[in-house]
Nucleic acid binder design. Structure first.
Lengths: 164, 164
DNA sequence: AAATAGATGAAATATTGTAACAAAATTGCC
DNA sequence: GGCAATTTTGTTACAATATTTCATCTATTT
């Protein structure tokens, strides 16, 4: 079972998450002969600033201006599309936001646990779960192409420390 | 396993789906002492016109005018919120759309199979899947409160008849 | 009938996402 | 290096989705 829930929900050296993510991104772009341009890299880095998913306009607001001008929505969305395409980030449809993928390249399916306390989201890829999903589809004659699983609740830390 | 995939993806007497849904809605409102007002009823009936999820503005466009005036967005969203609250409809976040729940009241979890061919969506509630999701959460110390599973692919009919 | 709570109307606005075309940068090739 | 082709970004405008606010109306209770 792949999971980044420990890192996502606990105090940790987050710089290592960022460094690892950026390094994987460079690798992956090299493999695919895709260009990790400054905007794309900046957007990815911003998304990895925390384990909280970020919306497109939040990214636009936080992104440092280029030549004194704010980077506009279309550029942000283009960067997002590029990063999605390469599997470097995922979209969380329920909140129109984007989060870094901790294991791009690995064959995996998207399962997210989103904590309503701290807002952080962890990604999990469990074979057992994927298998059941595949079975369930098949039993209905449904040809599964992609999936999105969003679980909402409270992470360990927020359970202990916080809101009932 | 609860599922409406047969009805959703095949030729069937859809009037029966509608009648059943509206009758369940009346029951459920009676139980909860909630009022199924004309707008709410009309929105629910519109959503049940097919097994294809419908967006809020599509509902606004199709809803017959009241006193010659088009029903405005806030009214639609208020009706949607009401119906969501009572579990009579679900939201499909990946496409900002809404679909009728075939088994409101029954304890179940939201799993949808959305066909990219015909656009129809079926709802399934499989114990095995729910169990695994619960397990997966627990193993990460995550207190699961709600879930949303959207599977995308091709239904049986579209697989046979259509696009590769 | 008056008071209250719940529901809807109306106007404006916020948020998220796209289309279309121009300008600039990069790449591949000679 | 110089040129053409391609990719990326800038810019403007706009579409689609959703919410806020306050006024008005309706139903229910007393």
């Amino acid at each position: 079972m792949l999971s980044n829930s420990r890192a996502a929900y606990r105090a940790h050296n987050h710089q290592r998450c960022i460094d690892a993510a950026m390094s994987r991104a460079h690798e992956r772009c090299a493999e695919r002969r895709a260009r990790l341009t400054p905007i794309r890299e900046a957007v990815l880095a911003l998304i990895w600033q925390s384990h909280r998913p970020l919306g497109a306009y939040a990214i636009a607001d936080k992104l440092p201006p280029v030549n004194g001008k704010k980077v506009q929505a279309p550029s942000i969305y283009r960067a997002i599309d590029f990063l999605l395409e390469l599997g470097l980030i995922h979209r969380l449809p329920s909140q129109n936001s984007y989060i870094g993928c901790p294991f791009p390249g690995n064959e995996h399916s998207d399962v997210f646990m989103v904590c309503r306390g701290c807002g952080s989201a962890a990604e999990v890829s469990a074979d057992a779960l994927n298998q059941i999903i595949a079975d369930t589809s098949q039993r209905s004659g449904f040809l599964l192409e992609s999936q999105c699983v969003e679980l909402t609740g409270l992470c360990l830390a927020c359970r202990d420390g916080e809101l009932p």
